[in-house]
Simulated scan of single mutants.
Amino acid sequence: MKTKIEDKATAIENLFEKAENYTKTSVELIKLSAIEKISEAISVLVSHIAIIVLVAFFLFFINIGISLWIGKLIGEYYIGFLIVSFVYLLLGLLIYKYKKKTIENPINELMINTLLKNKIEENEKER
């Protein structure tokens, strides 16, 4: 027959065991959630990179065509390439001047929205 002290000791052991299991489960859940968010962020990044590469190829060949066309109109092909290069220089300077607004902020927002997607959805459901 068990005494009250033994019953309390068994109850405390069970309580510690349940707390340990809860802690292990919570840590595992946090790990899985982090893995999910990281993999989602990487997949979004990879898909955007793929689109950027395809657009870059498109622009590359279009620019060659435009350069050749301008060069043919002017009479010297190298001048067409110089004109298109100058346009890109101006575009590059504008982007550099406004890089915070045009590049950095949208990328930061994309990453934050991707990583905090579940939090945002939960907040919208609560409203």
Score class of each variant (00 low, 15 high):
Ile95Gly: 06
Ile12Tyr: 11
Asn105Asp: 11
Ile42Ala: 15
Gly80Asp: 00
Ala34Leu: 14
Ala41Trp: 02
Val84Gly: 01
Phe58Arg: 07
Phe16His: 12
Glu28Lys: 15
Glu76Arg: 09
Ile66Met: 05
Ala50Ser: 15
Phe60Cys: 13
Leu59Ser: 06
Asp7Cys: 01
Asp7Pro: 00
Ala41Asp: 01
Ala9Asn: 08
Leu89Cys: 10
Ser43His: 09
Phe57Gln: 11
Glu28Phe: 09
Thr114Ala: 13
Glu17Pro: 04
Asn118Glu: 14
Lys31Tyr: 12
Ser39Gln: 14
Leu15Met: 13
Leu91Glu: 05
Trp69Val: 05
Ile12Arg: 12
Leu94Phe: 15
Ala34Asn: 11
Ile51Gln: 12
Val27Asn: 08
Ile83Cys: 03
Lys97Asn: 05
Lys100Gly: 06
Phe16Gln: 13
Ile38Val: 15
Lys31His: 10
Asn108Tyr: 03
Lys8Ser: 02
Val27Phe: 13
Ile38His: 10
Ile35Arg: 14
Val55Ala: 07
Leu116Val: 02
Val44Cys: 03
Tyr88Thr: 01
Gly92Asn: 05
Lys37Trp: 02
Leu115Val: 07
Ile42Arg: 10
Val84Arg: 01
Ala11Gln: 12
Phe86Ala: 15
Tyr96Val: 00
Thr25Glu: 15
Ile103Ser: 06
Lys8Gly: 00
Ala41Leu: 10
Glu28Val: 02
Ala41Thr: 01
Lys24Trp: 04
Leu93Asp: 10
Lys8His: 04
Ser33His: 11
Glu20Val: 04
Ser26Tyr: 11
Asn113Asp: 09
Val44Lys: 11
Ala19Asp: 06
Leu73Lys: 10
Lys37Asp: 08
Asn113Ala: 02
Ile49Tyr: 07
Tyr88Asn: 12
Glu122Asp: 12
Gly75Trp: 01
Ile35Ser: 12
Ser33Gln: 12
Gly92Asp: 05
Lys119Val: 05
Ser85Thr: 08
Lys100Gln: 08
Ile38Thr: 14
Ile38Phe: 14
Ala19Ser: 13
Phe16Thr: 10
Lys72Gln: 14
Ala19Pro: 02
Asn21Pro: 00
Ile49Ser: 10
Val53Glu: 07
Asn63Gln: 11
Leu82His: 02
Asn118Asp: 15
Leu116Ala: 11
Leu93Gly: 12
Leu116His: 14
